[in-house]
Amino acid sequence: MRVAIQGFRGSFHEVAARQYFGSTPALNACATFGELVAQVADGRADAGLMAIENSLAGSILPNYLLLERSDLIITGEVYLPIQQHLLALPGTALPEVRAVHSHPMALRQCGDYLSRFPQWQLVETEDTGLSARLLAERRPPGVAVVAGAQAAEAFGLHILARSINDDPNNYTRFLVVERAAAAQPVARPDKASLYFYTSHAPGQLARVLTLVASHSLNLSKLQSCPRPSQPWHYGFHADVEFEAPAQLAALLAELPAVTEELRVLGAYQRGSMVFGEELANERQADRKEASRLQL
């Protein structure tokens, strides 16, 4: 199996992919999320794993737009605890740091710590793991990076400061995406991601939310996104959790009456906090069960 991820060796995407899929699948490193989606869409990858939100830095809005514009479906999710560290070349002392490089989401997660050093230049990069690799290869003086412990180990960097993220309970949520034609049915789904648009009139969004509540679904996420070519009009991404698929089916039967556009982006199992191979074995068993149900 080939899995596309945004990022390179030592990135949190790599860790999340191994947490979900285990050690067997090959990982296709992508510089951008757009490339990740393209690889899955054209068959170069069997699945993709993409970050969608962080508990400190918030939602990654461009990725919601990628989901809207693609024909991929969401087949799973994973929550990864994130511990950001300040890494530097061995022998570098904290007073020698002049610039800090990392992905913008990583820098945002560490705003409180970084604000203590207003003299530091913050440089946004494509990826945490790539920042660490380039530091190890090019060895520029006075440069540090924000990345995880896996990047320090992979590239022989020294941890100058540990766990510099603003909140110790720092998590990133990742979505697993696949081509609809190739995806197997998800066994025992209990969560779904929807995209909908309502008329631009008072009370329309409230009608949708009332329907969700009336069918006893838990609305775990509601994210507004601008609609291209329609200034100040918004579509909505909603994640709903349920105990039985019949609850979702009943909701979907009624939503068209109060929406102008409705898409089910995927029905899947809620992310687990189980780590490593144990989670991968769980997912493999689920896929086997899904194949059996399909037969």
Rank of each mutant, 00 (worst) to 15 (best):
M1F: 06
R2A: 03
V3A: 05
G7C: 01
S11K: 02
F12I: 11
E14V: 07
A17C: 08
R18L: 06
Y20P: 05
P25H: 10
P25S: 05
L27G: 01
N28I: 15
C30A: 13
F33H: 02
Q39I: 00
V40N: 00
G43N: 02
D46A: 13
G48E: 02
L49S: 10
M50E: 14
M50D: 01
A51Y: 01
I52T: 06
N63K: 05
N63G: 00
L65Q: 14
D71S: 10
D71I: 00
T75P: 09
G76M: 03
V78C: 03
V78Q: 01
P81T: 07
Q83K: 04
H85I: 03
H85R: 00
L86Q: 01
L86D: 11
L86K: 03
T92N: 08
A93P: 03
P95C: 12
H101W: 10
P104I: 04
Q109T: 12
C110N: 08
Y113E: 07
L114S: 04
F117E: 06
E124T: 07
T128E: 12
G129N: 06
L135S: 07
L135Q: 07
L135W: 07
A136Q: 01
P141F: 12
A144I: 03
A151D: 11
G156H: 09
L160N: 06
A161K: 08
A161R: 11
P168S: 13
Y171A: 06
L175K: 00
R179D: 08
A180K: 11
A187N: 04
K191T: 13
K191C: 09
L194Y: 05
A201K: 15
P202T: 06
L205R: 11
A206E: 15
L209P: 06
T210D: 15
L217Y: 07
L219G: 04
Q223P: 01
P228D: 14
S229E: 13
H233E: 10
F236W: 09
F236T: 10
V240N: 06
V240D: 07
A244N: 13
P245E: 11
V258Q: 12
L262T: 12
L262M: 08
G266C: 01
S272T: 14
N281A: 11
R287K: 09
K288I: 12
S291T: 08
Q294A: 13
L295N: 12
L295W: 03
